[in-house]
Design a binder for these strands. Structure first.
Lengths: 339, 339
DNA sequence: ATGAAAGCGCTAACAC
DNA sequence: GTGTTAGCGCTTTCAT
């Protein structure tokens, strides 16, 4: 036989299916002797309980659905890794889906996950998502959902995000305290939340320190390696270089590294670079990037923990907003003037 | 209402539940007018089909279970990423589990996945796994299963693995052709499959090239950064350094880098290093590691593809063995004598 | 202590 | 074209 059911065990032992069901779950109704016989027989026959059936009638799946934009990006690998760890410890399975930064794939993923009746959802929005419809549906169905890293404002879902504006401000302050005033920014698209918050933090901090904001030193572009590369070329061709460049993420920083080296300049001797990233990757940069570290494990942990609490009704749904602090780490890509 | 069922739609339209079921699935029985009404009403009511129920009575889940040792290791992230991509394209969900290299967690994961009645399993064994019992169970239940990267020999499951011995041999030959003869190996534990195959390829290739095998230059140790570090210190303290070191993986190489630099030596001027790794990581090394590249995407793709074919009976179960070729890539960590 | 009946939400098979 | 019946594998009453 390929797929043993409780009724098969019942037949073999000449008892009813209910007895077997109870016996297997250690129900007090059943006598110890009978239990032993049932469990023993089940083992022998290679019985594996059908969780699908259990899920159907308990209307609980003990499953969490995760939607990430990408797994190539090791940032999200770390996030997911942490989430799975916590989920497993708390007896939840994880169904993992990847949106590839596409709104329609993301929507399909969420629909599937809701169809699978996951107990809750962890979602990092794709860059292009604007339609809230599927989330509204999830809301109506009262499915616990926690956004992480990228979230809709003004929806009744909890969210865990980095405190970007503050992180940028704190870090830039450290650079300024070191004595730097000529600082440029490769700031991504200001239309996106991320680009916006980081650049706001940058500009406000300059102003607070009474450093004039030069428009030609705030270079917009994308978030990829090539954008950092092109931005530096543009900056360099202007003939007026800053002392330090602030980059909106690690890929942009990497592109900038490449262009700087190609221009025959040295980091940090000729020009400094610092920016957003996370340790595990920017450690490998040459020289190591001085970084505003976003810890993916903190993010992931807070998000799952919150979700599980909402699923288990220990926390009220959709009301929590957690800001993960960022950390400035001096490394090798900006010269320290004072120590 | 929170959870709309087909019967709710049926009630509203004064038809039977079956009509709704058929209508939603575009069954030819139902008149176009009725279908339209049904679909419209379903949409309005926010109906999302319950896949659990569907799965229960079709005995198909369209779900693939994955078991990896780790996700911190970006090698596996890439593997999983590729698998999810392919699975999604072919309408399968993915339940992802992580064993943390622990046999008992791995076993629990597989048991859960079987309980969830996944249509198939993709497994990379943990380093400590020896017990075949759960796999025997899976075999008895006729669940398609494909091992990737690390597999049991002598079990009736298909597997996709790297051709390590050949890869090591080819690569070492390239180094020897360049004119090197004084070559050491940081070879991991020879007790593990990986350590064994790679070291065998190494030793055989030396012999074929009539280069004496020096025992003191084959240094066993673990597979972690610190092992590479300690191995080089040991080697260096002997006072007799080779020209080139072959490392069993990228972490060991990284440790060796560190120790070499601490000893005041330069790579590749004073000593060369090459070894196993994969591009995405070793690209960041300083200098870039000359590498025997194992492409995680190839591995992942072959494994899912094979599994899906077995699930859909396009390939006979458990008979395929795929060897993924490895690729030698010259980069910066070994000086080229000839060009 | 054990079992019969009913139901979770859906669908296949067979009437009408 | 639409509906009735039965069943996927399990569990939760409620009798016995």
């Amino acid at each position: 036989m390929v797929n043993i059911r409780q009724s098969d065990i019942a037949k073999k032992l000449n008892v009813s299916r209910v007895t077997v069901s109870k016996g297997l779950r250690d129900h007090p109704d059943i006598s110890p002797a009978m239990k032993k016989k049932i469990i023993e027989t089940a083992r022998k026959m290679g019985y594996v309980p059908n969780l699908i059936a259990r899920q159907l009638n308990s209307r609980r799946t003990f499953t969490i659905g995760i939607v990430v934009p990408d797994l190539e990006n090791s940032f999200f690998s770390f996030v997911v890794d942490t989430m799975i760890d916590y989920a497993t410890e708390h007896n939840y399975h994880v169904i993992l889906t990847v949106s590839r930064e596409k709104e329609n794939i993301e929507k399909q993923n969420i629909e599937n996950l809701i169809g699978m009746r996951v107990d809750g959802l962890l979602v990092c929005l794709s860059q292009e998502t604007t339609d809230k419809q599927i989330f509204t549906t999830a809301g109506k169905m009262k499915i616990p959902l926690v956004f992480f890293d990228r979230a809709f404002e003004n929806m009744k879902f909890s969210r865990v995000v980095f405190n970007d504006k503050q992180g940028a401000a704190i870090s830039l302050n450290r650079i300024i305290q070191e004595g730097y005033t000529r600082i440029a920014s490769f700031s991504g698209f200001s239309a996106t939340n991320i680009g916006k918050a980081r650049t706001e933090g940058f500009i406000e901090t300059l102003s607070k320190n009474k450093i004039p904001v030069r428009k030609e030193w705030i270079i917009e572009g994308g978030f990829e390696v090539n954008d950092g590369y092109e931005s530096f070329k543009k900056l360099n061709s202007s003939g007026n270089l800053p002392e330090v460049i602030f980059t909106v993420n690690d890929r942009v920083a990497l592109g900038a590294y490449k262009a700087v080296k190609e221009a025959g300049l040295k980091i940090p001797e000729d020009i400094g670079i610092f920016g957003y990233g996370f340790n595990e990757i920017t450690d490998f940069f040459n020289p190591q990037l001085t970084v505003i570290n976003q810890d993916p494990r903190k993010l992931g942990l807070e998000a799952v923990r919150l979700l599980v609490n909402e699923i288990e009704k220990k926390t009220k749904k959709g009301l929590t907003k957690i800001n993960i602090e960022e950390e400035f780490i001096w490394r090798k890509s900006v010269k320290r003037k004072k120590i």
